[in-house]
Structure formats: C-alpha cells, structure tokens
Amino acid sequence: MTALLEVDGLRVAVNGGAVVLDDLSFSVARGETLAIVGESGCGKSVTSLAIMRLLPPALRLTGGAIRFDGADLATVSPTRMRDLRGRRIGMIFQEPMTSLNPGLRVGEQIAEVLRIHEGLSRAAAWRRAVELLDHVRIPDPARRAMEYPHRLSGGQRQRVVIAAAIACRPDLIIADEPTTALDVTVQAQVLELLKSLQREIGSAVILITHNLGVVAQTADRVMVMYAGRKVEEGAVAAIFDDPRHPYTSGLLRATPDPTRPRPARGVLHEIPGMVPRLGARASGCAFRPRCARAVPRCAEGVPPLLATNSGLAACLFAQEGAAA
C-alpha cells in the first residue's frame, strides 16, 4: 500500500543560515496515527508547517519532497496548495486562545472553510457550522456559533478549531500539541474527541506532542526527533518496550507512565543538558554532548538510521541491545 504522506529528505533552513530540519524522512499511511515527539526546539512544529507550506518568512524549504496522495507539496503551485489546505489536510495548532480571530463569530470561522472549499451559501455554511459545533460536543451550538471567541473557554475554543479543521473531512489531520495549553481534565476530553472524529472520518493523524502518555494512548507509530533529525521510529508499543536510541530512553525515563514497565518505578530521571540552539549543534551525533554512552566515534559523522527490532534508530549502538 502506498503511503498517504511521504516526506523524503526534507530540509528547512533559516534564510541563508542555520539548518533547522536535516534530511527528514517519514511516512504516514491512510487512517494511521503517527506521533512526533521530542523536546521543545527539536523541529516538530517546523515539520508540520513545512508540510502545510506555511513556514514563517524567516525559514525556507531547501530540499526534499513531500508527496501527498501523488502530488509533491514541496513544488505545487500556491493555488493548488491553498485548495489542499483545510480541505484535504486540516491543521490544529497549539494555542486555542490565539488561533481564532477575535473579531469574528466562531460560527463564521468554521463556515468560512465550507464556503471556500465546498462553495456553500452563507446560510448553508452556517447551518453546517452549527452541526459541526454540535459534533465537537459544544452545548447549545446554535447560540455558541454566534459568540465571539473571547466568550469561550480554552477547551471550547480548541473544539472550534477542531471543528474547522475537520469540516471538510480531510485525509490528514495535523495536530501540533493540540492539548498542551489546556487543563489536564480538558486535555483528556479533547484527545478523546480527536480520536473519535478520526475513527469516524477515517483520517490519518500526525500528532505532535511531548507527552509520551498521550502517545501511548493514541498513536500507532512514533517518530522521535532530536535537533531537526529523526533519531528513532517504530511502532509505539515496540519503541516504548525496547527503545534503542539513548534519547528515546531518556525521554521515557523522564515520563511518569504507569502503563509502561520501568526499572525504578517512582523515580523520574531528567536528561542532562538542553536541546542545542540552532547553529550550535555538535558535529556527528547531535545528542552526543548529553549522552552517557557517547564515544569518540560518535563525533565522526551523523549516525545512520539502523534497523532494529523496534524500527529504526540513529545510534551507533542501536543494534547492540537496549539503550542505556
């Protein structure tokens, strides 16, 4: 089966400068959920914006292909890309408080998608918007549709954003930390909603998060990113069971998750050090300065992705058993 989305050798750089994403490749099958994890600054958001061709002006796509259902998004015309956005690829951003236009009624912000992509009349689009609000479980949707965003809570606003993102039943939903800004109880509800909508529509989902608990609950496969590169990838259960990259094991050890067997239950370990700033990445393996297992050879070029029992891992020792 061919993948719905196939990212191949994606490169993004700051205009004439530091490399942000380096040779990033991954794919998403129809209906599948791929989680992208990694600490802040690893390039998760930039990856999603590159797929949407919505990179901020300071960043440029400098190489690679983004094949989506036959078309290469890296080279399609702006008009064609605009037609895909919102219709075949829906995007949900991290900040529900600022994602909605403060000056437009929430109903309009959903109806807008339907008017653009499905050519619905104003009235028909509004009716659909109200139905969608009901669908994302907002109580009293007809009245809510008339409200401006400031009258809604964070969780409700994120539901509005979700409603707009799924309005055209897209093949792919990209959710960039959709629940990070929300209260814990609301987080679970919103994730549950997203999952049920995905089941119903049959969309594939790219779920960006740094919460491994969320990954365990929702994703089929997981891709771990570090400093703009993929360092490990595979089925969620396999990777959580048997991580082969020291960064992945570090992340897992730093996560309280009762569903996962952990040697020293109750003790959380922090990964020492920080994600390197752009342009200050170490030669060879970028994780080397923070890695307990690092040896001089790690500095001699970027480690290739090696096949492991759980998938792929970019560590010289990936094939030698569990990462420390």
Binding site: R82, R87, M91, F93, T98, S99, P102, E112, I116
Partner: peptide
C-alpha cells in the same frame, strides 16, 4: 498572528485574509 496562520491553514486566500482577518 496565530489567527492569520490558522486562516491560511484553512485554505483562505490572501485577499480574504487581508480584508476579513
């Protein structure tokens, strides 16, 4: 702003972005 980025992600064209958003 985030809301203009979100509008773009919905497929809204530049003219409509300028006038409405």
């Amino acid at each position: 702003s985030d809301y203009v980025r979100f509008a773009r992600a919905k497929g809204v064209g530049e003219l409509r972005i300028a006038l409405r958003h």
